[in-house]
Amino acid sequence: MKGGTNPVSTTTTRAIVAPGAAPSLASPISARPRGRRQDHPLWFLLPALAVLVVFFFVPTLFNFIYAFTDWSSFKSGISFVGFDNFVALFANGTLLNSLRVTLVYAVLVAIFQNVFGLALALLLEKDTPLNRAARVAFFVPVIMSALAVGYIFQALLKPEGALNDILGFITGTDISIAWLGDTTWTIVVVALVHAWKWMGLSMLIYLAGLKTINPDVLEASRLDGAGWWQTLVYIRIPLLAPAITFNVATALLGSMNGFDIVQATTEGGPGGTTELLNIFIFRTFGQGLFAQATTMSLVLFLMVMILAFPVIRFLRKREDVL
């Protein structure tokens, strides 16, 4: 954008073309004549475009429009009320509290999910039969229903649940910790559950990233006398940058939209300390205040956008080393 360069086109080129090979490959592509679209008439796009408009474009637009109305379950008419909903929402502290909780949750999930994912990927990097089986096992939670995961953990983490039983068996004392009943630490616990569910996906992407690292580079570092840890910190993690970009961005932005796991484990409690914005939206919608709920989802949408651009930009910047 600034300085006249187009970051989108340069970065996509880099993502598609392997590092180092770019100059030799770039020229044939740009040399191709521009009349290429002649062989595919534009109206071929229509069916796909229709689906896109009906299922993505229109609902998003509705989301913007309804936020400025008084749509509710209480009456049939819908009229515009300007910024009333926004003013009322921001005057009420609940929305800001939910935004704060959502942000904390998203950051925690992003950290846990990536740390676990990377650790698993490093642990299961070698293609042995045992590792292959373990990878499948760690990927299973990813394809499980999030609500089911939530309810299972809710049962495990109850004061009289299995986790306390196990701890009690090990320590030989009676333990009844309310894992989901602490107003300070429960958000960490639910973020851990969320990260547990999705860490298999991060693992898979880190594994793919590790596989693409050129063995010559690793061999060179070994010849230079670098230990395992040095290789990891100075060679492998920098070279994993594209995988990190994808994993951090999807974990952070995906968990901003979190709902199912928290709803199943705590329903936003105790004392509203895990009330994500989506749970607040669900509760408001359930009260029949459809317009207010729409306004909140618009606020969430804007917040994800505001967060997404700088985060992704920062992470892409790290890829410049490649």
């Binding site: 008084d70 509710s72 209480f74 009456k75 009322a88 009420n92 609940t94 009943g181 107003t183 409690g269 105790p270 004392g271 509203g272 300390t273 009260q287 029949g288 205040l289 317009a291 207010q292």
Partner: peptide, 29 residues
């Protein structure tokens, strides 16, 4: 329940309930 968990005082409970009640009443006209 928030009050019992210790995150709201009785005054805050009353205020939050009143705010929500007013919001619902306003939506009903």
């Amino acid at each position: 329940a928030d009050m019992i968990q210790g995150t709201k005082t009785p005054e805050e409970v009353a205020q939050a309930t009143q705010d929500q009640f007013a919001q619902l009443a306003k939506a009903q006209g």
